[in-house]
Amino acid sequence: MRRLILTTAAIALSAGAVFAAAHEQTVRLGTEGAYAPYNFLNDAGEVDGFERELGDELCARAELTCEWVTNEWDSIIPNLVSGNYDAIIAGMSITEERDEVIDFSAPYTQPDPSVYVAASEDIDLSSAVIAAQAGTIQASEVASMEGAVLVEFATPEETVAAVKNGEADAVLADKAFLVPVVDADPELMMVGEDVLLGGGIGMGFRESDAELREKFTAAIESMKEDGSLNALIEKWLPESATF
């Protein structure tokens, strides 16, 4: 035990030294870590996915030291404004409602199609019970549909589980999230048309933090120009449109 503590302390100290020696400003990036392929925890327990690769590249271009932090989706905006981390990069679509509380960078995806997934073909979506993650654009979309009943869940995982155990008739979520889910589960299928929601996915910043937002927007634009962003989208989000 003693050795374990010493080793931990040694690692911690050396890590601290490395951080101090690197860039002056450390930017903490908040993500959910439960929304593959955008962001998820890999087998080693590290943040991985489209946004991990994108975020690391953006930080390199903006010459910032970045650190990844995971946070529940429910409290991801409150924890940004109270300063627990400096940016949200969590598959968050740009909407007017959110824009009143935080500011967004330029979008790094096109408006992303959402799809319905159900356990059977013959679901009447206009009168169905539809699951969505709380606080998402999909949840507001279902809430605005007349006749449909919205059931909200805290995590994306639970929305799919609700369809599988019959609690909901269908789930509405980003297509890029649902495609691998449907591929892996023969019981589930996509129903209805794609729905285009939101203004693309962007990084979220505190409204008082315009400088940092500009840095990341510039980095995103430079990735759009040299095509590296499109390469990342094709790798991680094969169903999504490129720039």
Binding site: A36, P37, F40, N42, D43, D48, V160, P180, A184
Partner: peptide, 10 residues
């Protein structure tokens, strides 16, 4: 939580 093959070895 459900793990799909694309994102994990398990």
């Amino acid at each position: 939580g459900t793990k799909t093959p694309n994102f994990t070895d398990y």
